[in-house]
Design a protein around this nucleic acid. Structure first.
Length: 713
DNA sequence: ATCGTCATAATTTTT
DNA sequence: TTATGACGAT
């Protein structure tokens, strides 16, 4: 057996990781140290050395992109397709399990996956059904609560003993939502994981099967695992399996949505004979950039400990630019990009990274003025576009008549005379009879509740779906989608729409037809092709901009930059209150996460790193004069070259405007609009600080102190 | 039904 | 500032 092609390209640490013999392995992989490579080589090595058959390997990632990349690299290394290896996201794998074992899970055979929007809609309905005031019980808050509980592995029934009345109501909503989902055969993202976990807990024979099947399990981005994912892995590994995880505690930036860095440490306690391998040699950045990154992250406590190094050159100093305001900041960045592009760099060698997505705007404007192509990451994905969701909703109704979210979405899209009144009647019927909207509509037509016109329109809608459904049997998916788009009138609807995006919309519909046509159902899972396609659409929302092959400047938040690298990186808006963000800067844990975010940003750069901050920034309509971010001060000064052009010293009276009055708890204050109130809570300090005031008339409100204009009484 | 007005609030986002 | 959602008026 020849393993040299797998082993030879690796450095010592990578080789140690790839060939580790112990039961469980934790690879602490710094940024740019070749972690994906180690994972791919590990898989290849396991197969080549006959420690596992491809069939016995499970590789888990967080994103579909990472999964695709991993599979690609394994296949490149093995020089053959590896279809029998299970490579997928936690959610994708869980979905697969649930499809295979739908009977054991108690789900209907054709259960459907809902995304965050559908979930929110269902929660809103549950809240209304409970006759709670939506203003008081924000559906968003409830959604947040429910998802957070699911991430912890907790169902409503597990939360019985909670005394807090506020939480009790949220639990009530959670329970109602759970029942609703169960009744409708709908599964949200958190539910996929929770059910998969329960499946194994309740059916030891199923668990035993997978334990035997997957003696080798690999996990990427381990620092991002949440409680339920960790518990799921523990189940699967038991005492006999082998778990190989790769992660970087310094790049844990998703704590706010349930990821637990502590799993990196816990792993060594919870699993047997764990071997720890550090990958610290970096192949991406200059020594200067790495030094800065190391210095910043050194300010965090409770790290596993790791220092990046390179045998490459020191490179250029980090450029620090203090802009007068956000416009000058953008102009400066764009000028530099233009200059470098004219000297032979591509636009897509450049990335502008910011803390909050709102910051992209000024950069977009500036780039547009210069006629420079750019691409903003994040935002809408293909399957989230309105026109695509419309078609998908029709398809969902065809697959599953009881899908209320889908029903609501398309019952009157395009307009077919089923207005608010008719819909209210249908909703009401559904509520009273406790049936899905579909059946309620049938009933309401039957008993004349809708009136002649409404009933006729509703019948037309119902038979439209029935007809499409009848024709769907045995039709190729692409044809079905095309038929749906035409027969439902969506095509005409979008053709008639005379707004700027209309051509895009039609093109997107075309694209969907193509995607459906190209889709080859993997039908070993026991669902039909349409259901399977819908699951994929929910699980893989698709890339943002479909048609982006043009060389363009890359704009994105720091969060979405994780895992990417660019020749030249602009890290912008390094100001106290913005980055670190105000809402994180009074809590040590959250501040550390902000610092990790900074570390992620710094380590994206290969050659040049440009850091900017503005002396004046317009935020929410008011001017602020933020201090430069503490993260700048954490970088060794000798690595930094400061640039200042057009320096304008502001008159001193403009230096501090805001916090003339610091507030204290219990203080009586008066607000121009809300009148008198008492300070309940304080958060943060300086120009971004917020106070919660209980107003006699208006009730409790959160206000930003510096522009709420509160006066002490 | 669609449009305009008003209030409200304001990280990060994948699956 | 601005985006969003709710509500009332055409």
């Amino acid at each position: 057996m020849d393993v040299s092609r797998i082993i030879d390209p690796l450095n010592t640490a990578q080789r140690n990781a790839v060939t580790a013999e112990s039961a469980n392995t934790l690879v602490l992989a710094g940024a740019g140290s070749g972690k994906t490579r180690v994972l791919a080589h590990r898989v290849a090595w396991l197969i080549e050395t006959r420690q596992a058959s491809p069939h016995g390997i499970l590789a888990v990632t967080f994103t579909n992109k990472a999964a695709a990349e991993m599979r690609g690299r394994i296949e490149a290394l093995m020089a053959s397709p590896q279809r029998t290896i299970w490579v997928g996201t936690f959610h994708g794998i869980a979905h697969r399990l649930l499809r295979r074992h739908w009977q054991e899970t108690g789900l209907p055979r054709n259960f459907q996956i809902i995304d965050g929007n559908d979930q929110l809609r269902l929660i809103r309905r549950a809240i209304r059904h409970l006759e709670l005031d939506e203003a008081l019980w924000a559906p968003r808050e409830a959604q947040w609560f429910i998802n957070a509980r699911k991430e912890e592995g907790l169902r409503a029934q597990h939360l019985d003993g909670v005394a807090d009345p506020h939480a009790q109501t949220l639990i009530k909503i959670y329970r109602a939502y759970e029942e609703r989902c169960a009744g409708l055969g709908l599964v949200d993202f958190g539910e996929l994981l929770l059910r998969a976990h329960e499946l194994w807990r309740r059916h030891p024979e199923v668990l035993a099967h997978y334990r035997q099947r997957f003696p080798q399990v690999l996990v990427d981005e381990f620092q991002d695992t949440n409680a339920i994912q960790y518990a799921w892995l523990r189940q699967l590994i038991g005492t006999s399996g082998k778990l190989f995880v790769v992660g970087d505690d310094d790049q844990s930036i998703y704590g706010w949505r349930g990821a637990r860095v502590e799993h990196m440490q816990k792993f060594q306690k919870d699993f047997e004979s764990v071997r720890l391998v550090r990958l610290e040699q970096n192949y991406r950045s200059t020594a200067t950039i790495l030094q800065a990154a190391n210095a910043v992250i050194a300010n965090n406590s409770s790290r596993l400990g790791k220092e990046l190094w390179t045998d490459g050159a020191a490179g250029e100093p980090i450029i620090l630019f203090a802009a007068f305001n956000e416009h000058e900041e953008a102009r400066y960045c764009v000028e530099r990009i233009k200059g470098w592009q004219e000297h032979g760099r591509r636009y897509d060698d450049h990335a502008i990274l910011y803390r909050t997505s709102a910051q992209s705007r000024v950069f977009e404007e500036t780039l547009r003025q210069r006629g420079i192509p750019y691409r903003v990451y994040g935002g809408f994905r293909f399957y989230e576009r309105a026109e695509i969701k419309d078609v998908l909703a029709y398809l969902r109704l065809i697959a599953w008549r009881e899908d209320d979210a889908a029903f609501e979405r398309v019952v009157n899209t395009p307009n077919r005379g089923i207005g608010q009144r008719s819909l209210d009647i249908i909703r009401d019927t559904a509520k009273r009879a406790g049936t899905p909207l579909w059946r309620a509509a049938q009933a309401a037509i039957g008993d004349g509740a809708l009136g002649a016109r409404g009933a006729a329109a509703a019948s037309r809608f119902l038979s439209l779906i029935e007809d499409l459904s009848a024709g769907a049997m045995g039709t190729p998916l692409g044809t079905l989608v095309k038929t749906v788009i035409i027969e439902t009138g969506l095509e005409d609807h979008y053709r008639k729409e005379k707004t700027a995006g209309e051509i895009d919309r039609l093109e997107n519909l075309e694209e969907l037809v193509r995607a459906a046509g190209d889709y080859i159902a993997v039908l070993d899972e026991g669902a039909d092709a349409l259901t399977e396609f819908l699951a994929i659409a929910a699980l893989e929302a698709g890339e943002g901009q479909a048609n982006d092959y043009e060389d363009s400047v890359q704009l994105m938040t720091l969060h979405s930059a994780k895992g990417l690298e660019f020749r030249n990186v602009f890290l912008v808006g390094l100001e106290e209150g913005l980055f670190p963000h105000q809402r994180c800067s009074d809590d040590a844990t959250q501040l550390e996460e902000e610092r990790r975010l900074c570390y992620v940003g710094l380590t994206r750069a290969k050659e040049k790193l440009i850091i900017t901050h503005a002396e004046t920034r317009r935020l929410h309509g008011t001017e602020h004069r933020p201090q430069p971010s503490r993260f700048i001060a954490e970088m060794p000064a000798e690595l930094i070259a400061e640039v200042r052009i057009g320096t304008v010293t502001m008159p001193p009276q403009l230096q501090r405007i805001e916090h003339d009055a610091a507030f204290r708890l219990g203080q009586r204050v008066v607000h121009a609009k809300f009148g008198e109130g008492i300070v309940l809570r304080l958060e943060g300090e300086g120009q971004y600080s917020r106070v919660q005031v209980n107003f006699a008339q208006a009730g409790a409100k959160w206000l930003v102190a510096s522009y709420a204009g509160l006066r002490p009484v």
